[in-house]
C-alpha cells in the first residue's frame, strides 16, 4: 500500500493533466508545512529548550539520577524481552497466514489487530483483572511469590500486548505479495523447512522485518497507557522512562522531566532514520515482488 501511494505521487509529478496550478500547489505545501511546524517541530524544539533551560549540568544530573537510571534500565530490559518475542511471534503468524490455508485464518488476522483497536488503558486493566490481587489468578500468584501486577513482569506483559501487531502487520503484505513459489522451488530442490526459511524466506523479507522491529521497539520504549496501569509507579523499581517523565512533571521538576523526555525524542530520531532506510529498501523489494508477479 505504501508502495502504491509513492508511485502515485510520482505519476502526479510526471503527468501535467493531474497537476494543479502553481498557486494551488504552494498553498497546499504551505498548509502542510505550517501544520508540521506547529504540531511537530515546535514541540520538539521546546523539549530540548526546556531540558537545557537550567544548564547542561542539571540536564546530566537529571539523567544520571538513580531513579532515572533505573527507569532507563527497565525500559531497555522491557524492550529486550518484548521485541524479540514479538519478532518471533510476528514471523510465525505472518508465515502461518500467508503460506498455509486453514480454517479461522480471518479470525487470526483480526485478532492480531486487536491491540491496535483496544485503548492501551483498557489493555492494562485487562491484566490487572487477570493477575491483580483481586483478580482471577492474582491470589495464587501472590501466594507463590510471583507478583505480576505492580511489578516488572506486569510491565513486560503489558508492553508485549501493546506492541504485538507491529512485526506481523509489516510482514503479512510483503509475504502475500511474494507468494509461495520461491519456497516451492526450494522444496523441489530438496531444501528442508528450516533451510527454506533461512535461505529463501528470510532474505526476501529482511527489510520489512527490520522495519517492523524498529516500529515495535519504538512503541515498546514509549508505551505509556497500558504500562501506567500495571506498573504501580514504584520509583526505581517499576517505572519506565515515560512513567518517570510523568512523575517528574507532576512534581513540577520541569527541567528534569524534559531532560529525561529528550532521551525518548533522541530514540525517536534514531528510529526515524533507520526506519526511512529500511522503508526504502522494503518498498523496493515489495515493488520488485509485485512486478515479478505481474509478468
Amino acid at each position: 500500500m505504501r508502495a502504491t501511494s509513492t508511485s502515485q505521487v510520482k505519476t502526479a509529478r510526471h503527468n501535467p493533466a493531474l497537476s494543479e496550478s502553481p498557486v494551488v500547489k504552494w498553498i497546499l505545501i504551505s498548509i502542510a508545512l505550517l501544520f508540521i511546524i506547529v504540531v511537530l517541530i515546535l514541540p520538539l524544539i521546546t523539549v530540548f529548550q526546556q531540558a537545557f533551560r537550567k544548564g547542561f549540568d542539571v540536564y546530566v544530573a537529571a539523567i544520571t539520577e538513580p531513579n532515572a537510571l533505573a527507569a532507563i534500565r527497565l525500559t531497555i530490559i522491557t524492550a529486550l524481552i518484548a521485541v524479540p518475542l514479538n519478532t518471533i511471534f510476528g514471523i510465525a503468524a505472518a508465515w502461518a497466514i500467508t503460506k498455509f490455508k486453514f480454517r479461522g485464518k480471518q479470525v487470526l488476522v483480526s485478532l492480531i489487530d486487536l491491540p491496535f483497536a483496544i485503548s492501551p488503558v483498557i489493555a492494562g486493566l485487562i491484566f490487572v483483572l487477570l493477575f491483580g490481587a483481586q483478580g482471577f489468578l492474582g491470589p495464587w500468584l501472590i501466594e507463590h511469590n510471583m507478583p505480576i501486577i505492580f511489578a516488572v513482569p506486569g510491565v513486560v506483559i503489558a508492553t508485549i500486548f501493546v506492541t504485538f501487531p507491529f512485526v506481523a502487520r509489516e510482514l503479512i503484505p510483503i509475504m502475500q505479495a511474494q507468494g509461495n513459489s520461491e519456497e516451492e522451488a526450494a522444496v523441489c530442490l530438496g531444501a528442508s523447512g528450516w533451510t527454506i526459511f533461512r535461505k529463501v524466506t528470510l532474505p526476501n523479507i529482511k527489510w520489512g522485518l527490520l522495519y517492523g522491529i524498529i516500529l515495535c521497539n519504538a512503541r515498546a520504549m514509549g508505551e505509556f497507557g497500558a504500562v501506567s496501569v500495571v506498573s504501580g509507579h514504584i520509583r526505581g523499581e517499576t517505572n519506565t522512562i515515560p512513567l518517570h517523565v510523568e512523575i517528574l512533571y507532576n512534581e513540577y521538576q520541569f527541567a528534569a522531566a524534559f531532560a529525561v523526555a529528550s532521551l525518548l525524542v533522541l530514540l525517536a530520531f534514531v528510529t526515524l532514520i533507520v526506519k526511512s532506510i529500511a522503508e526504502r529498501k522494503h518498498e523496493l523489494s515489495l515493488r520488485e515482488s509485485l512486478t515479478d508477479g505481474g509478468e
Binding site: E184, C188, N204
Partner: peptide, 18 residues
Amino acid sequence: PQKRGIGFVFQNYALFRH
C-alpha cells in the same frame, strides 16, 4: 517433494530473487 528427485520449472520461474 524433497525426496522425489524431481526437477520443477515454474510458470513464473520462481527464481530466488536475492
